[in-house]
Design a protein around this nucleic acid. Structure first.
Lengths: 154, 154
DNA sequence: TATTGTTATACTCTATAACTATA
DNA sequence: TATAGTTATAGAGTATAACAATA
């Protein structure tokens, strides 16, 4: 184990560089990088419950709600009560939300290209695997703190 | 270039996992993960100016100031006017700040160990290099937007 | 003229705890 | 009893723009 600081610092720097570049590019579309991540999660599926959405984007229920309220105001998402479970709400993109997501996807192209071109194809694959291993190693940690290991059926 | 979402998402997840685990562990010490990063930057050197500190921890001048105000209130850092440059201020750890940093360093040991043990020694080195390449590829982008390329003499 | 830092301000994300309604 | 989501509340980090003092 080399210098014990290097890895965390490098991870932080890379993430922040990505996050801020993204925020910067998306500023004129009036959407944050985090909101984009939320829209992207919804663009995959027809609809998700708030809880599912929170798991996808690694955010708290109350954080998810705060974000949804902002995005609802802008008209990009809509919430309906879930057909089968009256406690739950399903979240989905509005047509305007889909258009916005497509815009953002294009606007973000340059950044993604920069990131991918920093690594060769094999390296990219390996890099992603490393990231996922890091994530798993830390998630194992948090399991012992969280209550429900049950309903992770995403 | 495979699925264009995978890399950014994996990077985000890994960073957030690290950041939140760290925040969680440090909560009882009443220091955030970001504040820890600032203290760590100061623990290397005798003193830094606020501007230098901002470059180290990838933060805005006004963000740095906000963080320093909080840490000053807790008695962990002190600011003095710079001997040679009356505009600048030098920031350094107080004795209490050094003690706190040492505490935090120990408290964070488990998380660092988890991260490093997810990768072998060679993999770790490679992973850090990949991260740095990603960072550089994005920083090149931002150069064109920022004013001063001159004084990056850290 | 350029740079260091401050101030005022505002916004997003985050988190906790108590709560309602439903399962 | 457990779960989905809300509410109230608070705090941290972030960023911008105008500013004073100094280089």
């Amino acid at each position: 184990m080399q210098n014990q600081r290097e890895l965390p610092i490098a991870l932080r720097r890379a993430y922040l560089a990505m996050h801020r570049s993204t925020d910067h590019v998306f500023a004129k579309y009036e959407v944050t990088a985090d909101q984009f991540v939320l829209l992207a999660a919804l663009s995959d599926d027809q609809a998700l419950t708030q809880r599912q959405l929170g798991l996808r984007i690694s955010s708290d229920p109350s954080t998810v709600r705060a974000m949804l309220v902002l995005l609802e105001k802008k008209g990009f998402v809509e919430r309906k009560s879930h057909a089968a479970d009256a406690r739950a709400k399903t979240v989905s993109l509005t047509p305007a939300g889909k258009r916005k997501f497509n815009q953002l996807w294009k606007a973000g192209q340059k950044i993604r290209k920069q990131m991918y071109s920093a690594l060769g194809p094999d390296e990219t694959e390996q890099f992603i695997e490393f990231l996922n291993r890091i994530t798993r190693s830390l998630d194992n940690n948090r399991e012992s703190h969280s209550k429900s290991h049950t309903t992770l059926k995403i």
